[in-house]
Simulated scan of single mutants.
Amino acid sequence: RGAPASRVFGIAERILKAYEDIGMRVSYSYALRDQNRLVYEADEDFCRRLPAAIGTELAEYLKAQAIPLPDHLGLFVDLWERAGRNTRERARVQLAPANLHWCSDESLAALRDYSAEYRVGLHMHLVETVYQKEYARRRTGTTALRHLHKLGLLGPPLTLGHGVWLTEDDIDLVAETGTMVCHNASSNLRLRSGVAPLNDLTARGVRVALGLDEAGINDDRDMFQEMRLVLRLHRVPGMADVVPTCAQVFQMATAGGAATTGFADRIGAIEPGKAADLVLLPWRSVAHPYLDSGTSPVDAVVHRARAGAVDTVLVDGDVVLENGRVTRVDKAAVLEELAASLRVALRPDEERRRRLSREIFPHVRRFYDGWLDRVVHDPFYAPSSRR
Rank of each mutant, 00 (worst) to 15 (best):
G2D: 11
V8Q: 06
I15N: 00
L16H: 01
L16Y: 08
K17R: 14
A18E: 15
Y30W: 10
R37I: 02
D45V: 14
F46R: 00
A53S: 12
A53P: 05
L62Y: 04
L75P: 01
V77A: 10
W80C: 04
R90F: 13
L95E: 02
L95H: 00
E106R: 12
E106M: 08
E106C: 12
S107Y: 08
A109F: 04
R112N: 13
L122E: 04
H123P: 00
T129M: 15
V130E: 09
K133D: 14
E134W: 03
E134A: 15
T142R: 14
L154H: 01
P156W: 07
G161T: 07
G163Y: 00
V164H: 05
D169S: 15
D172H: 13
M180Y: 08
H183F: 10
T202K: 01
R207K: 15
D213P: 03
I217Q: 08
D220H: 08
D222A: 06
F224V: 01
E226S: 10
L233Y: 02
R235Q: 12
V236A: 07
V236S: 13
A247W: 05
A253T: 07
G257P: 04
G257W: 02
A264E: 12
A276T: 10
D277C: 13
S285F: 09
V298S: 08
A300I: 07
R306Y: 05
A309L: 12
T312F: 07
T312M: 11
L314M: 13
L335T: 03
E337Q: 14
A339R: 15
A339K: 13
D349N: 07
E350P: 00
R352Q: 15
E359N: 08
F361H: 09
H363E: 11
V376K: 10
D378T: 12
D378G: 10
F380H: 09
F380S: 04
P383I: 14
P383Q: 14
